[in-house]
Amino acid sequence: MVNTQVFTIPLRIAQSIFAIIELGLTAYVVNRWAHGWWSPSQANFLLFCSIWTLLVLIYLILAPLKFPRFAHKSAILGIEAVTMIFWFAGFIAFAVLLSDIGCGSGWWGCRVNQAAAVFGAFEWLLFMFSTVLSMLYYFSARGKHTTTHDPNMEVHPHQTV
């Protein structure tokens, strides 16, 4: 059995922090673009990815702790993989949009838009790592017909001695 418990808490904390940063950046970007009565779908999708990630993290943290019946290894792997694909598609599409527009010296949000793309890439990397951990767990537990969850996939509070 692969022990992924060591990485779970720091990984979820990092994913949460980056999702909140990305939410702030993309909300600002969408708001600034919306002053022209529209915002690009790429920015809107990154905003969706941030909100989706926060909802997913609630499930990934709470389900193994409070609702173990719903913390099935296939569901966790599927949600991790879908979220990873969302982040990949989102940051690539937004980066392409920014490269098409270019950053002029007079453009209001060049650096903010670039930061949103970079933090999206970091979030993708974090979810790629957690998806790999989920895959390792999934395939190491394959063939075991059980409806219970593995404590290795739980987020445990740190206990002091």
Rank of each mutant, 00 (worst) to 15 (best):
A63C: 02
F122H: 06
M128Y: 02
F70G: 01
A115P: 02
A141C: 12
F88Q: 03
K66L: 14
Y138D: 11
V112H: 09
C49F: 12
S140K: 05
L98I: 05
W107C: 13
W108R: 00
L55F: 09
V118W: 06
G90Y: 04
I85A: 11
S74H: 14
L98F: 03
V132Y: 03
R69A: 08
G106I: 12
H72Y: 06
L77E: 14
M135G: 05
F48I: 13
L98A: 01
I79L: 14
I92V: 15
I92P: 00
F91W: 11
R69V: 11
I61T: 11
S130H: 09
L55Y: 04
L65Q: 02
I92N: 01
G90E: 10
F122N: 13
A81P: 01
S99T: 07
H72S: 12
N113L: 09
G109L: 07
I85V: 13
E123K: 05
A63E: 12
A89Q: 11
Y138R: 06
Q114P: 00
L62T: 05
F67P: 03
I92D: 01
F88S: 06
W87I: 14
G106Q: 13
F88D: 06
W124H: 09
F67L: 04
A115L: 15
G104Q: 09
F86T: 00
G109K: 05
A95S: 07
W87R: 00
I79A: 04
F127G: 07
R69K: 05
V96H: 01
L55H: 04
K66S: 15
H72F: 08
E123C: 15
F94V: 02
N113Q: 13
I79D: 05
L97N: 01
Q114T: 11
D100E: 10
F88I: 10
V132W: 09
A81Q: 05
D100N: 10
M128G: 10
A117S: 12
P68A: 05
N113V: 04
T53R: 06
F91G: 00
Y137C: 11
A117H: 04
L57Y: 06
V56Y: 04
A117V: 13
W87N: 07
E80W: 01
V112F: 11
S105R: 15
I58M: 08
C49T: 11
L60G: 08
A75E: 10
C49Q: 07
I58Q: 02
L126S: 08
G102Q: 06
L65A: 12
F88R: 01
V96S: 00
L136E: 06
L97E: 04
F127N: 09
F127D: 12
F119G: 11
L60D: 14
V96E: 01
G104A: 14
L57A: 07
L125D: 08
L54N: 06
A93T: 08
A71C: 03
W124K: 03
F129L: 12
G104I: 14
V96Y: 02
I79H: 02
A63R: 00
K66M: 13
G78N: 12
R69G: 07
A89G: 07
